[in-house]
């Protein structure tokens, strides 16, 4: 399924709780989200519980989704990340409980990014991620999948903290270059 189709289904879900669209979103994202939660160190049963909770959230919050602000995968990632924190790292759930917050804030921005741009961006970022030097990709995935802090990554990889930070900077810099190309 293309990023554009996934966006359209999320919109249909938000507009009239379309169950067909919900099923398609589930078929596409549920097996991926299960992997996402397994990578965070959960057992398979817990991972499925988290998938279940995530989709309940998706159903309830789909009307807040704005296709011109985020691709479907980006929006679902924020829901999943917050769900993971809520269940596994509850000490910081007070910070991340409101995933709609920044999205709604950005709506008021004068930024003229279109839905097409959002979806194109995700595809180009995916390609760029695959081309990242492995030492940068490793650190990015430790942050996103394992939720490892800079200090934990430094310790696990026996690297100076500054090296971890600079590799993260480089990886993000690459993404930002792609972003500015797409928006130009």
């Amino acid at each position: 399924m293309t990023a554009g189709q996934l966006s359209a289904m999320l919109v249909a879900l938000g507009e009239h709780h379309d169950r067909g669209a919900f099923r398609q979103l589930f078929d596409h994202f549920a097996p991926r989200l299960k992997s996402f939660y397994l990578k965070a160190g959960t057992n398979p049963q817990m991972a499925e519980e988290l998938v279940q909770e995530t989709f309940t959230q998706i159903w309830r919050k789909a009307h807040l989704y704005r296709p011109d602000k985020a691709a479907a995968s980006t929006w679902i990632f924020t829901i999943a990340r917050n769900q993971r924190i809520d269940r596994l790292r509850s000490e910081k759930s007070f910070v991340y409980k409101d995933e709609d917050f920044f999205a709604s804030k950005l709506v008021s921005d004068e930024e003229q990014t279109t839905e097409v741009h959002r979806n194109e961006l995700v595809e180009r970022v995916s390609k760029a991620m695959a081309l990242l030097p492995s030492n940068q990709a490793e650190i990015v995935s430790m942050a996103f999948y394992d939720e490892a802090t800079h200090a934990e990554i430094a310790q696990k990889l026996s690297l100076p903290l500054g090296t971890v930070k600079s590799r993260m900077r480089l990886a993000f810099g690459r993404l930002r270059n792609i972003l500015s190309e797409v928006e130009a």
Partner: peptide, 18 residues
């Protein structure tokens, strides 16, 4: 929001688990 695109791309590309 830009950095969250990376999270979305990682989810889009992760292997599937039944």
């Amino acid at each position: 929001a830009e950095a969250e695109v990376i999270g979305g791309a990682l989810i889009a590309d992760v292997e599937e688990t039944a």
